[in-house]
Write a protein that binds this DNA or RNA. Structure first.
Lengths: 362, 362
DNA sequence: AATTAGCAAACTACGGCATAGAGTGCTAAA
DNA sequence: TTTAGCACTCTATGCCGTAGTTTGCTAATT
């Protein structure tokens, strides 16, 4: 069922007004600020209709109207104004990204900080575990007489390094031969392929390579989708308390507890890969049970078509979606993430660094 | 000025009572629960004296007494009961530490979680940057044609690995020769020695090694005390809101903002190395300016006489110090941290794992 | 000299009450 | 279809009085 232009205008006015003040919006307020040509009575009638349609509610019979979650969904889809970042907002971005950034962790942290600072909401960023990486090379490096370091190089960067304890005296020659063997075995395959059917890919393993071999398999396992490894960063959790909807201590606590359990946030933050920005607006079934009422907006960050991570905000359903979208959009376009997969280690040189361009292009 | 035994008893009763209920303690309450032999009037006189001495205050003329910060300081030093962990508390410890733990990060996180869960306070743990580690070996491993990974092995574990970009085609032979050179240059020295006078330790560097060399120096720099690298973990920040003293939204927000700025927490958490447990009880000059009123109790964790990190709690001045101390004490004695320095990488095998003994020995 | 009973004074916490103000829905007129 | 006018509903706020708690002080007691 479509909305007439006037209803749309009024709905937008209510949402905008409520986002701004967190106060029920009255008919006279709308008349004055947005539709002076109409009388408040007419606007009241339209608002009553919008309530009938499920877009508005009242807290009590003599209060103004408040948008429903459905109204916000329509708002982000059609109604909301598309902004660019203001000069001062761009300054904030630059402040965090103009220096050389050498670690993926830092990019994550800074992204989250920028988002939180500009939107004044709690933000979250994380690197997605990605088992689509293809193995290029595996190196075993002797550390002590009995232990060695495993280095796995993929097309998305250096994966993870774990030390493995190899009973007796380890020689460099032994390491080289294991390196050759495992590289030969795995190179060219993606991690998910290997996880799915390790036996098919590798037919036979020499007895003395067993230990290294199983350790490597274990590392791959930790990258599978089921047992997701991911680095998650939260910024500005105190900002939750600035939102009037969490002024109630009980609600504030529920929200903070939700944020505290970082690991459990991951499934909630997952968004569909084909869309750049995902909205989850207080629809309970979409999100974890027992979760406090809130909205989550996330953007996925891609490198060469592959999603490497997500970043976004968590806040009350009444949030400034327009601003949030503009920030997420801008960052996803301009912050160049390191061309390395999850768990990649830092880079001591200047070759990779995040850059921010001066202009947005919407 | 010493306290008579009776005054001590009354003071202890007030502190204990206030810790338990967060309610001003009245003379009659003390009479009933602790000193039935005395009249409330006598106790009132003593309490007035304790107020005169700076150990108690009242919120208003007709309220009971509340301990001052000074009272808590005396309490933790002399008055408080020394407990052992209860059976159920030990269970919590075991729940987090009975599985194999392979990464220092995990130990940190679990330590913080245990502390937070048992004390019901916000806890914090961090690994101290330690530049006392001695270099054993440095390996340069070829990753791609133009880049290599630097692995630094110290007596405290594998330090950090950074990729370095080496302009033209990198061969394994080149890597080996660089490895030999830098190992020869640095092995046997501590990081702080190298940071202090790199030129004295290494006289001359071949032109083609320059790049790798400077990258390594930069890594060492990041471990110096000035530019501290440290991993800091916060657990249960939502628990702050359970404390009545932060029921006020403004105070809660101040506290959460303080916790949000993790980096700034480090200097606050630093404690004197020679003492096992350090108390900072609302003495403003000791702690950062603008900090909300709170108490911080930290324990330092040592391996072989070297402090590898700290862990503790942050909460209201009125906290259950007795319980806090018993937990910190127990953990510092029984959780065996990984024998690896800061920044050590994970360990894919079972060789290192944290263990928890079943009994306390106080 | 120390302790205690008794009592007035101080102060908070709470519930009830009345009032002001904001906003709506409805009806009848334009 | 729109609007003016009005009664009705509900919240928010401040005021007031009362009940209850705890203290400090004084005078009596041990």
């Amino acid at each position: 069922m479509g909305l007439t232009g006037r209803k749309e205008k009024i709905l937008q006015a209510v949402v905008d007004g409520y986002i701004e003040n967190c106060q029920p919006v009255s008919s006279s307020e709308i008349k004055e600020k947005h539709l002076p040509a109409l009388s408040s009575a007419t606007i009241r009638n339209e608002m009553a209709a919008l309530e009938e349609m499920g877009y508005l509610t009242q807290l009590h019979t003599s209060s103004g109207r408040v948008p429903t979650a459905e109204a916000y969904r329509l708002y982000v889809e059609k109604l909301m104004p598309r902004r660019k970042l203001t000069r001062s907002e761009l300054k904030i971005v630059k402040r965090y990204f103009n220096k050389k950034i050498t670690e993926l962790d830092e990019v994550l942290k800074n992204t989250a900080k920028v988002i939180s600072e500009i939107t004044n909401l709690t933000s979250v960023a994380y690197v997605q575990s990605n088992d689509a990486a293809t193995i290029l090379n595996i190196r075993i490096v002797r550390i002590t007489d009995t232990s060695a370091l495993i280095i796995i190089v993929t097309n998305m960067g250096v994966l993870k390094d774990a030390t493995v304890n190899i009973g007796s005296g380890v020689t460099d020659e032994y390491c080289d031969s294991v390196s050759q063997f495992v590289t030969g075995a795995f190179a060219g395959h993606t991690i998910s392929e290997i996880n799915r059917q390790p036996n098919k890919i590798v037919k036979q393993v020499k007895k003395e390579y067993e230990r290294v071999f199983s350790t490597i398999l274990r590392i791959f396992k930790s990258y599978s989708h089921d047992d997701m490894f991911s680095d998650i960063v939260l910024e500005g959790s105190a900002k939750i308390l600035e939102q009037p909807e969490y002024a109630n201590l009980k609600k504030a606590k529920a929200m903070l507890e939700f944020l505290d359990a970082k690991e459990e946030l991951v499934p909630v933050l997952q968004n569909s890969d084909d869309v750049n920005i995902t909205f989850q607006i207080g629809r309970d079934n979409e999100i974890r049970e027992g979760m406090p009422e809130c909205a989550i907006v996330t953007a996925s960050y891609n490198i060469g078509g592959v999603t490497v991570g997500n970043a976004g905000v968590i806040g009350p359903i009444r949030m400034d979606y327009s601003k949030v979208v503009s920030v997420l959009d801008y960052l996803s376009k301009t912050v160049q993430m390191l061309p390395a997969g999850e768990g990649a280690q830092g880079d001591g040189t200047d070759e990779y660094s995040s850059s921010v361009t001066s202009d947005t292009d919407e």
